[in-house]
């Protein structure tokens, strides 16, 4: 009995820690986005709320909570209400299987990567429902575009993961990370990004498409569709959509790091150098999380960086890229992975 209670306690603490990390990361990410956008455009960005404007997202969140919920006339009230929740919840659920560190993982299930692919596609239901129930043509168009885009790019995403699974020989994310331990020669880490460079590139592109980020943000294209699927949303319901988007960015970056960049493993030559200077317990429990987060941080910055560099694709270009370029390349990548693995080349 006591063991069960202890297990539950540890489990709850883990969940609390991961969710805090995810939501705290979201808040921080909104700040990074605004600051990064500002600096790339030679502006200053948030400055006044807290040091360097760090508390600006919190102030914005409080403002969103205090605002009025507006339901448009003739909107489907039930769907309109649950759409943001459906969009937000799955993006948080992804974190359940991501190994942030060797001992920091809520659940190590043996089909982790399939779980992630399944859960991350659920968020699209929220977007489509939000677009449909708003009783607004722009919202509907946004929702439809979103659905088409997700279907097109989910295939690429799934296929680019196949290569990694072939190399690791397991669907469990923990096993995938452990399979990337060690180094080849000259201290080049044994991360899957090296043999799977094509898969990495494909995952990178479809990662942007899956999170509705520029250059693939057609579902919410402000200049064409007002605000896309959340045109009619206000207050915290809008906030949930936005937070869902940011949490999805973080979670897909975590997946990216786990699959291709060795998860919480340090670089083979920098790792021992830094860890030699620190106490053993710190190295065992804290440093993996630090390595993991620093890798994730790079991709989070990449999201902002790319957003202010590349313009939005046209809708036909989006579909042409997805079906005529990425999917054939993804199939090719599967073949490459199979050949490399079968003949033990890598």
């Amino acid at each position: 009995m006591e063991n069960v209670l202890l297990y539950l306690l540890v489990f709850t603490l883990k969940v609390a820690a991961i969710i805090t990390l995810a939501l705290g990361g979201t808040t921080f990410m909104i700040w990074v986005e605004r600051k990064g956008a500002a600096r790339i455009q030679n502006r200053s960005g948030p400055l006044y709320v807290g040091p360097w404007g760090l508390f600006q997202p919190i102030a914005d969140g409080i403002k969103l909570f205090l605002k009025e919920d507006i339901f448009p006339t003739c909107a489907d009230k039930v769907l309109f209400f649950i759409a943001p929740l459906i969009c937000f919840a799955p993006s948080l659920m992804t974190f359940a299987v991501i190994p942030v560190g060797p001992h920091v993982q809520i659940a190590d299930i043996n089909i982790g990567i399939i779980y992630i692919l399944a859960i991350s596609s659920l968020g699209i239901f929220g977007i489509v429902m939000g677009g449909w129930s708003s009783n607004n043509k722009y919202s509907l168009l946004g929702g439809l575009r979103s659905a088409a885009q997700m279907i097109s790019y989910e295939i690429t995403l799934g296929l680019s993961v196949v290569g990694v699974v072939v190399f690791a020989g397991s669907l469990s994310l923990n096993d995938i990370v452990m399979a990337q331990a060690g180094s080849w020669f000259l201290g080049i880490p044994k991360w899957f990004v090296i043999p799977q460079i094509l898969g990495f590139a494909l995952f990178l592109v479809s990662m942007f498409a899956e999170t509705n980020r520029l250059p693939f943000d057609l579902p919410e294209a402000e200049h064409e569709l007002v605000g896309g699927y959340f045109t009619e949303y206000s207050s915290i319901q809008w906030g949930l959509f936005m937070m869902g988007e940011y949490v999805a960015m973080i979670s897909i970056s975590c997946v990216m790091v786990t699959l291709f960049l060795g998860g919480w493993l340090p670089l083979p030559w920098i790792g021992p150098l830094v860890e030699g200077l620190l106490p053993a317990g710190f190295v065992l429990y804290v440093m993996p999380v630090v390595w993991f987060l620093s890798k994730v941080a790079f991709f989070m910055f990449l999201f902002v960086w790319v957003r202010w560099t590349i313009p939005r694709l046209r809708y036909d270009q989006l579909m042409a890229l997805g079906w005529k370029v990425l999917i054939p390349l993804a199939l090719l990548n599967v073949i490459i992975a199979g050949v490399l693995k079968t003949f033990q080349i890598v």
Binding site: A38, Q41, N42, R43, T309, I310
Partner: peptide, 21 residues
């Protein structure tokens, strides 16, 4: 070309903002 574009934006990222407080 995308890499070139990323180079341009990162250059501006590290330059001083022109905003006057």
């Amino acid at each position: 070309d995308i890499l070139k574009g990323l180079g341009v934006t990162i250059k501006y990222f590290f330059s001083k903002p022109v905003t006057f407080r």
